[in-house]
Nucleic acid binder design. Sequence first.
DNA 1: AATGAATGAGATTTCATTCAT
DNA 2: GATGAATGAAATCTCATTCAT
Lengths: 193, 193, 193, 193
Amino acid sequence: MADRREEIIQAGIEIFAAKGYYNTHIAEIVESVGIAKGTFYLYFNSKNDLFISLIRRFEDIFLELFEIDILVAETEDLKSFFSKLLKKIFSLYKEHKNLSIIILREAVAVNEKFREEFKEMDARRFKRINNLYQFLLDNDYLNQEIDYDYFVCVFVGIMESIVMRRLLLSEQEFNVEEAADKASLYLENAIKK
Amino acid sequence: MADRREEIIQAGIEIFAAKGYYNTHIAEIVESVGIAKGTFYLYFNSKNDLFISLIRRFEDIFLELFEIDILVAETEDLKSFFSKLLKKIFSLYKEHKNLSIIILREAVAVNEKFREEFKEMDARRFKRINNLYQFLLDNDYLNQEIDYDYFVCVFVGIMESIVMRRLLLSEQEFNVEEAADKASLYLENAIKK
Amino acid sequence: MADRREEIIQAGIEIFAAKGYYNTHIAEIVESVGIAKGTFYLYFNSKNDLFISLIRRFEDIFLELFEIDILVAETEDLKSFFSKLLKKIFSLYKEHKNLSIIILREAVAVNEKFREEFKEMDARRFKRINNLYQFLLDNDYLNQEIDYDYFVCVFVGIMESIVMRRLLLSEQEFNVEEAADKASLYLENAIKK
Amino acid sequence: MADRREEIIQAGIEIFAAKGYYNTHIAEIVESVGIAKGTFYLYFNSKNDLFISLIRRFEDIFLELFEIDILVAETEDLKSFFSKLLKKIFSLYKEHKNLSIIILREAVAVNEKFREEFKEMDARRFKRINNLYQFLLDNDYLNQEIDYDYFVCVFVGIMESIVMRRLLLSEQEFNVEEAADKASLYLENAIKK
DNA sequence: AATGAATGAGATTTCATTCAT
DNA sequence: GATGAATGAAATCTCATTCAT
């Protein structure tokens, strides 16, 4: 029986990703886990509450991504830096595909409450990307005309567009290596001096 | 009384954008228009039907965007080309902010049916961006390492990320000129020879 | 344009028979006639009113059936009497198949109001069959053990059962001659001295 | 609290019989049972579903009717055979008067789907009456001019006509003994050699 | 006479949540 | 902790009828 809460979260990830928030019913989740409806409410206050937990779960998992210290240490040039970073990012999205679907497709749409949650998470993410920006600045890799806010927008935009269209909406196997390679080429060109 | 159908569409755009598909109820739409519930169903078969109409409306409006012939004619260099194109794009998104919210935030999330509708539209959009790509190729602006699929991903990703974060999720006034300028700089650098 | 009222009645007969009272909508009737909804209400007070008119129409058409004087005049024996009578009856049902469907299938079911209308009609019909009964009695054809009420029940029951199962529910062509022949055999045997 | 499903079925039988399918609303059924609307849908998928269940219930109850083995064993002559059989039939209709109303009055009328359900049931019933026919044939009771299809039509027609007019549409107490006696007289005469 | 856009009461059905066991 | 029958507010959609033109 392990951890009931975790079982529910896993079922939630799978079903929310497959059907979307409003087309997922508590009945399905509890059936999938093999528990009674009442039991669900011992572990979560509401359907809403479970969904928020999934957003948090996403953040927990993707938190480590921008701990770039290790990357930095072993970086020789800008292209290989981006390539390594994107490989990590894409791999994580691929590994947690369902959770990614929930975040990229559902989280902003569902309702105002989740939107706020999402915006806060996005802000925290942006802060972390700041580390990356600082690193690039400090190492004199950055074209001085670049400004921070737009750099993050561009970086996240390219990354999410690839994840969305190559991984989530596509029926073909997502090739992490190739995607990282192609994208890093754009990024390097876009911002190098 | 003008055009009832159009009145309903306008109300739909506003309310779907504000509350999302599932939190928008026919009752609110008809109240907003000032008609009876039954009247709504004279013009649309269902809530679903109205939503689909909004997706189509978006496509109609944004169709012209990638008719780049005029742009092409008056283009001097790659940066000013992108800048002009993005100014047109961003202006249109800003002008149709609510419709944009519906497309970028709701359309993929609501349900499988809309997702299909959205994917088809996305495919048509990508085809049109092909014109842009061909133009760049023909004019020898493109780095030969660039491949088409990723170029479109990057282009759309940057564009949508800026629209999403600067226009839709931000509370501040969206500066079209600035956004087009910054983004075109990245794009030029990213793909020029 | 002939007679609007009659056009509506004809459309009503066809559509009520095909779809039943509650699955027939005024919209369909007026569309079939080629008039506007409002026009319908110039000729009938309500959907109900039209349906009542159809019940009356049935009665008008079937009224002549039990004017047996002519039959009586030319009758030689009981079997040929029944056979001739049933031939007339079955032919009329066949000719007015849709109206018959409405009476036999819908009229009792629809609602309390129609039920009353139907019961009254049934009573009038029974009275007319009385003529038949008197004729048989007067001619000393009837077994004395037979009583009137049950004779009518039996007569109408056999007749309607054949109409219902052979004409209305069956997909095969209804053979009036055969049906009249078979049924008259039973009837003759059942009541002859 | 006994059996919720059964309580709903009993309420359904009563109310459908009194008001007909389209004038019976879920609200009335649940109020009559004393449950909430949602509870109804725990036991039946729809109003339709409940109605189908009632048709099936009718068939279950009336299934035994044509198990004529016992009757056959104790039969001396044709008249007393019919009389006993009809007594059983009429008693059952009387006992389940409301269910009988639903079948004889509503089932064919409501809609195409029920009509199919009804036709299938009618076919099964006819098959069972075949046993009766065979018995009569085997015992050399039947006039050889009689053919099967019309015999069933006549038998069912007489029976249903009596049930309809004497039990369902009449306000007077239905006398089973008398009805069986009268009808069996007709039947015997109609088919005996 | 004829129209048809508009009405709105009311029907069926859904589903997150509760709570007595 | 676990259950699952029961809830009931609320949503979508229907359609006979009206009435200003």
